[in-house]
């Protein structure tokens, strides 16, 4: 078990990431990214700002209708694999992972 953990740290270090330990579980936290990144990579509770929608016109249209306009503030309620639940303009919106990949966000 200990050996496995050490290997994990080694891997994380090799990948240029920081490993943090919480209650015996470890999470590999990426270095803060300077530019926009896909919504799918954001964590629950993070305050974000939508920067860009990289989607076709149909999906982009629908996302705009839901209030996901560039510059809007949003927070992630849940992102634990599968669809994401976000909060935007006082509404909770569920997004498939594929959609979340197409939304570029920045930390607010």
């Amino acid at each position: 078990m200990k050996l496995l953990s050490l290997v994990s740290i080694g891997l994380a270090a090799a990948a240029g990431s920081i490993a943090t330990w919480v209650n015996g579980q470890h999470a590999i936290t990426a270095e803060p990214q300077p530019g926009p990144f896909p919504l799918s990579q954001a964590h629950a509770g993070e305050a974000l700002r939508l920067v860009r929608i990289d989607a076709g016109c149909r999906l982009a249209h629908r996302l705009l209708e839901l209030g996901l306009t560039p510059g809007v503030a949003l927070t992630i309620i849940q992102n634990s694999g599968g669809p994401l639940l976000i909060s935007v303009r006082d509404s909770r919106v569920a997004l498939g992972r594929g959609m979340a990949h197409k939304l570029q966000v920045q930390r607010a």
């Binding site: 839901l66 209030g67 006082d90």
Partner: peptide
């Protein structure tokens, strides 16, 4: 319209 959320509702 939710008056606290005009922008999206006005659409």
């Amino acid at each position: 319209i939710d008056a606290a959320n005009l922008e999206r509702n006005l659409y």
